[in-house]
């Protein structure tokens, strides 16, 4: 029907499958997010370490290439689990900053503008809404963590030989698992904070604060009580413990992998509870 016909007419066409509708949210979110030049440039910069990492793997596997520049590293540098751990830690830090920038703008505007009833009066539930919003972060962060991590692993495998790949497959598994765990915890914290405070800027500050204040609080407990229990409040360190465990690094960070997994699981449950309380069409004031 042409737009000049100003009479009401119903819709009788075919509908999209219900399961696919949560993907509408990331599409519109990306369109809005990348209107910001700052975010666009920052996100582009997040890929530089990947390019650098690929070049480094090539160079290490082609010592003749380095020697042509007069560099002789001998056996000092190897592409092993520690290399991928360093990659994961660096990209993980970028993820954290990116989440603080992007996360709050996903949910807070809907809550601040009272738009949730319009989503939920449609065949679209709260799980789909949260899933749709989380998928924005999942796609963005995956593209700078486990996807390039696995690519680097494959590059190394192709250069070092497939026996290397067979001996080190657990590195790829660790990269994927460690990245996904970090992305999930960051996404949940970002969504829960922005749902709670509803103000984008304050939510961004809160996301940063959860990690910084948690770290400071944990260090204070450790210092005062001469214990390592405070490490459980330092979410970034707990994640580093998990990465270290998955990538078989023997660095002692003051907590066991079990402690780290259980604490992060508890934080995730808390975030889900907060989202359950706040992501509703209307809040009910009981009395």
């Amino acid at each position: 029907m042409a737009v000049y016909k100003k009479s009401y007419k119903g819709f009788s066409g075919a509908l999209t499958p219900a399961w696919s509708r949560f993907l509408v949210l990331p599409r519109y979110s990306f369109a809005r997010l990348f209107q910001s030049k700052f975010l666009f440039i920052f996100y582009a910069l997040c890929f530089f370490p990947v390019v650098g990492g690929a070049g480094f793997i090539y160079a290490v596997n082609n010592l003749g290439f380095l020697q042509s520049f007069g560099i002789n590293i001998g056996d000092a540098v190897k592409i092993n689990n520690n290399y991928f751990l360093a990659f994961l830690q660096f990209q993980g830090a970028l993820c954290y900053l990116l989440t603080a920038l992007v996360g709050p703008s996903l949910v807070a505007p809907d809550l601040a503008n009272g738009a949730l009833p319009l989503y939920f009066c449609r065949p679209f539930n709260r799980v789909e809404y949260v899933g749709g919003k989380m998928s924005v972060l999942f796609i963005l962060l995956s593209a700078i963590t486990w996807i390039p991590g696995v690519l680097l692993f494959l590059i190394q495998s192709s250069l070092a030989g497939w026996t290397w790949m067979a001996d080190h497959w657990w590195i790829a598994t660790g990269l994927v698992l460690g990245s996904v765990a970090w992305i999930l915890i960051l996404s949940l914290i970002a969504l829960a904070c922005s749902a709670w405070v509803r103000w984008r800027i304050a939510a961004g500050a809160l996301v940063l604060g959860v990690f910084f204040l948690g770290s400071a609080f944990g260090s204070a407990i450790n210092g005062v009580l001469k214990t390592e229990f405070g490490t459980r409040f330092d979410l970034a360190r707990l994640m580093a413990v998990i990465w270290g465990d998955l990538l078989r690094s023997d660095t002692d960070l003051g907590a066991s992998a079990w402690d780290a997994w259980s604490t992060l699981l508890a934080v995730s449950i808390l975030c889900v509870w907060l989202l359950d309380k706040k992501i509703r069409a209307y809040e009910v004031v009981k009395g």
Partner: peptide
Amino acid sequence: MAEISGLPAEAALERAHE
């Protein structure tokens, strides 16, 4: 909003204008 209701993207755009 139309797409969340299940309209395909192109139909949703047309209906939004209408």
